[in-house]
């Protein structure tokens, strides 16, 4: 009797799983019918994202799915969950499936190498976006990302604009592990140095550079340490929005939010919201939709036989409160 029950339980669950498959397996065969007209499918592209819980990568994934379909490719999206072994396993599964191309945000810039190499050996072209592969053994056709150096320079320009009359002390909330953040800080420092080099300009000095962890809690602590050591701090440059928001939270808790102004980076929806509310002065913003669209464009170019640049950098733009007030994405939210 109870054996029978176990069997039926199993059967039910398997049928359920089978149904789940049927719904989500998407178009099979050679025709894509979802847009109404029938396009001959030229192949599938596998995308292993760093994570899909971060809206940045979700936007990249959604844009790429749409763009790929326009060009006759089906995009399969999986999430590496920030674990490089999971991602390497997913690449192996892509190879078994025989995808036409693979797109990655490497979960680790170095240890993803062996998996990319296996794809190279099978002749499958590999593309990366936002995060780059850092190694010599494996070959990536093209890397698409935000121009972080130029973005850092924009942040520097904005800082100079803000403090050029008065001068003042500035703190940087860094995330030195990430190469992208090193570039942002480099561009920022360049612009400040250029301003300070002109005779008679009031000096803008970076008095402390602290690790803000790229996260809210650590940004809070780092701002506390920076202000503890420099009472007269005039401004903070944070390498991303969460650490900028953490710093703002600390400043509000000690009533210094009018003395110390903040410039962030990224311009994701919460960061834009903070700019709208005047909590962050401005952000050099990134364009995940462009990153996604250009990645697909490069894949199409590759199969068209065109020359593809090994690296494409997408310029950032400054985003102020006035931009936020005109931003339809923020209007919808209210």
């Amino acid at each position: 009797m109870r054996r029978l029950d176990c069997c039926s339980l199993l059967l039910i669950s398997l049928v359920w799983m089978g149904c789940g498959k049927g719904e989500s397996s998407g178009p099979r065969g050679t025709d894509v019918g979802s847009t109404g007209e029938s396009v001959t499918i030229k192949g599938t592209i596998g995308y292993s994202a760093l994570t899909l819980t971060n809206p940045f990568f979700k936007v990249i994934a959604d844009t790429m799915t749409e763009e790929a379909l326009k060009h006759g490719y089906e995009l399969i999206v999986v999430s590496g969950e920030r674990d490089v072994k999971t991602q390497a396993d997913q690449i192996d599964d892509f190879i078994v499936k025989g995808v036409a191309a693979i797109i990655l945000n490497p979960c680790d810039s170095k240890s993803i190498g062996p998996a990319i190499k296996r794809a190279n050996e099978k002749g499958i072209p590999v593309f990366t976006n936002d995060l780059a592969y850092d190694g010599k053994d494996a070959k990536v056709v093209c890397h698409v990302a935000t121009d972080n150096l130029q973005g850092g320079r924009l942040a520097g320009d904005a800082m100079v604009l803000m403090l050029k009359e008065t001068g003042g002390d500035v703190a940087v909330l860094h995330f030195p592990q990430a190469e992208s953040c090193q570039l942002r800080v480099k561009g920022f420092t360049e612009k400040l140095a250029a301003h300070n080099a002109v005779d008679g300009n009031p000096q803008i000095n970076i008095v402390s550079t602290l690790d803000g962890g790229g996260a809210r809690e650590e940004g809070f602590t780092a701002a506390k340490d920076a202000l503890g050591a420099n009472q007269d701090l005039a401004a903070i440059f944070a390498i991303n929005d969460p650490s900028a928001q953490g710093a703002r939270a600390y400043l509000e808790s000690v009533g210094k939010e009018d003395q110390v102004r903040i410039i962030g980076f990224d311009g994701f929806i919460t960061g834009k919201q903070a700019i709208l509310e005047g909590k962050i002065v401005c952000d050099p913003i990134q364009f995940p939709d462009q990153i996604g669209a250009i990645t697909i464009e490069m894949i199409v170019k590759h199969f068209d036989g065109d020359d593809v640049e090994p690296e494409i950098l997408i310029p950032s733009e400054l985003y102020y409160k006035a931009d936020a007030e005109a931003d339809p994405a923020l209007q919808q939210k209210e």
Binding site: S13, G20, S24, S25, V77, V78, D89, K97
Partner: peptide
Amino acid sequence: NGMNLTNVDPFNQKIVLGGVLLL
């Protein structure tokens, strides 16, 4: 592996794995 080969959405993959554990 099977879910990756049959293009199951990554969020659904988590639901299935949780269900299997419960089962």
